[in-house]
């Protein structure tokens, strides 16, 4: 037996090898758990909403204009909830897109490193504010204030929560798009300056096209967040399903409906109980599509440079 083999066979080293193998298995298990979580989400949403889809034709679910699951004349059309969700998220995007673009260009191209070091933590602080606090702010401060300027604004409305959602997703959108912009190679900037461009021209004709997939990803992911955000709309947009074209009115979003139903006593196994999983499934599918699109776009810009 060679010296090497003797060393390999020593109990001390063997114990070490066994521990290493066990730990590797445990680490793999914790990484694989994340896949299990996704699987569990899909499984729970599908199985718990099955009773709903066996009783309500999917065509009614998608086209009925009313959502009144607890009335005696029950209607199960998701359109009112969906339209309110899209209104709120759409208004959020109207706020977050221009502000986010300006802020990310400013942070990546204009601000000095020392300024950026101070500003980014402040943006992170904004992202850290609990959503229920934003809800309080929207309902009890901004809405009464905005009522003085916007005639016809109701106490619960889609406009103000939408704007607050836009501010909430701003730090997130800015941080992803700034990352993408900073990944654009310095040589492209230098070439742009060499052609005599101003910094603004450079930002809009070199940086934004260069970081386009990353910036787009930021907005897709931001939209997905706004769609799934719960507390602000549950508090400030009201809990009344309302298919409306006027954001000054209140309307329950998908998330607000789930919250409203969870507040009451939901008998397990009832049709009403399965409605929250049915609308949850729709919400999950929408956010999944946007998340995946965002993920692949982000990955593309990482590979591009």
């Amino acid at each position: 037996m060679s010296e090497y083999q003797a060393l390999q066979a020593s109990p001390f080293l063997r114990r070490g090898r066994i521990l290493a193998a066990v730990m590797q298995a445990l680490l793999f298990a914790s990484a694989a758990l994340s896949v299990l979580i996704t699987g569990a989400i899909v499984w729970v949403l599908v199985t718990e909403s099955l009773p709903f889809f066996t009783q309500v034709p999917i065509w009614d679910f998608l086209t009925d204009l009313q959502w009144t699951p607890v009335f005696t004349d029950a209607h199960y059309g998701i359109l009112p909830l969906l339209s309110a969700t899209l209104w709120a998220a759409g208004i959020a995007m109207l706020v977050a897109t221009p502000l986010g673009l300006i802020l990310s260009i400013y942070l990546s191209e204009f601000a000095r490193p020392s300024v950026r070091e101070v500003l980014k933590p402040i943006l992170e602080m904004l992202a850290a504010v609990p959503t229920v606090v934003f809800g309080y702010f929207a309902l009890l401060f901004l809405t009464p204030l905005a009522k003085q300027f916007i005639p016809g604004l109701e106490g619960f409305n889609l406009l103000i929560p939408g704007i607050v959602l836009g501010i909430m997703i701003l730090p997130y959108v800015v941080s992803i798009s700034e990352d993408a912009m900073r990944a654009v190679p310095m040589a492209l900037r230098e070439a742009a300056f060499g052609l005599g461009m101003s910094r603004v021209q450079m930002a809009f004709s070199v940086i934004i096209p260069g970081a386009f997939s990353g910036v787009t990803a930021a907005y897709l992911l931001g939209f997905s967040r706004a769609v799934g955000e719960t507390m602000v709309v549950a508090i400030a947009a009201g809990q009344n399903p309302n298919l409306t074209g006027d954001p000054r009115e209140g309307a329950a979003t998908i998330t607000a409906y789930i919250v409203q139903m969870s507040l009451g006593d939901l008998p397990h196994g009832s049709l009403v109980y399965s409605t929250i999983f049915a609308v949850g499934l729709v919400l999950f599918v929408i956010t999944l599509i946007f998340n995946l699109l965002g993920f692949f776009l982000r990955r593309r810009f990482r590979e591009a440079y």
Binding site: V44, L45, G228, V259, L288, F290, L292
Partner: peptide, 13 residues
């Protein structure tokens, strides 16, 4: 993708 799943979906889970 899990990072982007709305928190309320975790609640349903």
């Amino acid at each position: 993708n899990l990072a982007g799943v709305p928190s309320i979906i975790y609640g349903l889970l």
